[in-house]
Nucleic acid binder design. Sequence first.
DNA 1: CACTCTCCCTGAAAGC
DNA 2: TGCTTTCAGGGAGAGT
Length: 276
Amino acid sequence: MPELPEVEITCRGLAKVLIRKKITNVTTRRSGLRIPFPADLSKNMHGTRVRSVTRRGKYICINLSNGYVLVIHLGMSGRIIIADRHYEPKLHDHFIISFSRYQKIILNDPRRFGLVTILKSDELEYREFFRNIGLEPLSDKFTPDLLRSKLKNKKIAIKLALLDQKVVSGIGNIYACEALFRAGISPKRESSAISYKLLSKLVNSIKLVLTEAIEAGGSTIRDFVHPDGKLGYFAMKWQVYGREGEPCLCNHQKNIVIKKIVQSGRSTFFCPICQR
DNA sequence: CACTCTCCCTGAAAGC
DNA sequence: TGCTTTCAGGGAGAGT
C-alpha cells in the first residue's frame, strides 16, 4: 500500500527513464479505475514529451511538454512497472504508455482503488484537483506551529488526523502508526489536546520516518514493487505496524507487547506503555 | 460543520 | 487438502 515514500521512489524511478521521452502510444485495458479514464486521455498525451515527474501527497504527476499533467494515484495495490517493447500485458494491467526508445510503463492495480486523470497544469483545473490536499510533510513549511493550527478544535484521535490528507498529505496507515510510536504519543489522544512540545516531537518523527523509508528505497509490504520491477525486500523494519502481540522494541526486559485496535475501521498498532 | 460508516475491489491468509 | 470467510485499506460520499 503505497504511501508517500513509495510514491516518491516510484516518481524518481520514472523520472530516471522517462524524461524527454516522447509518448508514442497510450492503451487502456478497461474503462477506468476508481474513476473512469478521461475520454481525451490518449489524445492529450500522444506525441508529447515528459518534462518532469513530481509528487503531490500520494499522487504521481507526470508533467508533459504540452502543458498537461498526467496524474496517477496508486490506491491500495497499484504499482508501476517499467518495461521494454517485449512486455506482454498481464492480469490487472489497466493502463500502458509506450515511449520512444521502446520504453513502456504499465499501471497494474489488482484492487483498482487507483486513479488516472489528466489536467491542464497552468489552469484552475490543477489547483482545483489538489485543493483539499494538505501540506507536504517533508517541506520546511510543515512545522509544529502549522500542525497545531491544523489540529486546533479537532476532537478526533491524532491517528485519524494524521490519515486525513487535508491535515497533512502522504501519510497512510503504516507511517501514521510508526510516527506516533516514535513520538511516544498514544494514537487515541485527542488531536487538539496535545502539547506543543509533543507536536514538535511528532513533526520530527513524521519527517524522520518518511525520510528513512525513502532512503531505504521505499519500504514494502506485500505488493509494492520498485519501478524497475524489483521487489523492495530491503524494506524498513516496522517497529509497531503488523506486530500485534510481539514485544515492544523499546522495552525488552518487561513483558510489554504491541496492541492492535481499530479506529474508524482502520487497524492501529501501538505500545500502550511507550505511547501516552 | 464535525465526525463515522460504508463501499469499491482482489488476493492472501485464516478458519473450518 | 480444499473450500469458505475474513481482512487489508485510500478516498468519496452517505449517514448521524
